[in-house]
């Protein structure tokens, strides 16, 4: 059984808003140098989901990562967790894409890999906040897809998925091959294992350029996108915070209640 996990490298979503600035000329977000690159958190959960299946079935887990000048430390993290192989779609041509061009390139790469039973994505990327690429890949490949999963079980050519909904969850079945997008409700991803360090470092990535997956430069990245950012900005939400004080914490807390009452807030 082959499982492909699509993982995106993103800037640390926990970094504080202050360290980001807008580059108005290019409509991009510029971050301070100390902002780390990390595996998109939901994709780490997707890796975990794949490894839970591997633990049971001995499946092979291949990680696909698209971008430019990808950070090998980030890209290798799934290997330290237990994944088997990684493929980097790394080229300047992939820069500046949207959900459309990204899903296309990933689908082309998956076609090139050829044999797969399950494809896993994160429910959404921490930078785009789109939640589209997984469904896009499934549409392009013509395979069934369930989104926002918290549990995946596979047996005899089918997958049973628990999909998170606003008020609970649904149990959905589909035939393999299929695509599932994974959410944080799956639970904590395992830690990268130091014991795997040497083995993981000896695994070399396959590096594919647009031409390797049958794409012209004009089909991908910025040239292949369909949604364009006209303007990127940081909306200012200026609220002057009134700090409530008191001789003691208890008194301050009581003063807060009094203040809220006098303002008819409570």
């Amino acid at each position: 059984m082959n499982i492909i996990v699509c993982m995106k490298e993103v800037r640390d979503p926990d970094a504080s808003s202050d360290v980001f600035k807008i580059d108005m000329n290019n409509n991009t977000l510029v971050s301070a140098d100390n902002v780390l690159k990390v595996v998109n958190p939901f994709d780490e959960q997707a890796v975990e989901a794949a490894l839970r299946i591997k633990d049971k079935t001995g499946a092979k887990v291949i990680v696909l990562n698209l971008g430019h000048q990808l950070d090998l430390v980030v890209a290798r993290k799934p290997l330290l967790m237990g994944a088997d192989e990684f493929i980097l779609l790394d080229d300047e041509g992939f820069v500046g894409g949207d959900s459309w061009s990204t899903a296309h390139a990933l689908a082309m790469a998956i076609k090139k890999i050829g044999s797969y039973d399950l494809i896993l994505c994160g429910r959404q990327a921490a930078d785009s906040n789109a939640g589209q690429v997984g469904l896009g890949i499934a549409q392009i490949l013509g395979i069934p897809c369930v989104t926002i999963a918290r549990k995946i079980e596979v047996e005899e050519g089918k997958a049973t998925v628990e999909k998170v909904t606003q008020d609970g969850y649904e149990i959905i079945e589909m035939a393999l091959p299929a695509l599932v997008t994974v959410s944080s409700e799956l639970g904590q991803p395992r830690y990268p294992s130091i014991k795997r360090l040497r083995a993981a470092n000896s695994i070399q990535p396959l590096i594919w350029k647009p031409a390797d997956i049958g794409l012209e430069p004009s089909d991908t990245g910025k040239a292949g996108r369909r949604a364009k950012i006209l303007r990127l900005y940081q909306p200012v939400r200026e609220v002057e915070c009134e700090f409530i004080e008191g001789e003691t914490i208890q008194e301050a807390a009581e003063n807060l209640a009094l203040r809220l009452r006098s303002q008819k807030i409570i």
């Binding site: 808003s17 807008i22 977000l29 921490a126 930078d127 906040n129 364009k228 940081q234």
Partner: peptide, 12 residues
């Protein structure tokens, strides 16, 4: 976008 750190105007 970026988890609410920025906002973007898109043209499809």
């Amino acid at each position: 976008v970026y988890g609410g750190k920025a906002q973007a105007d898109f043209d499809c």
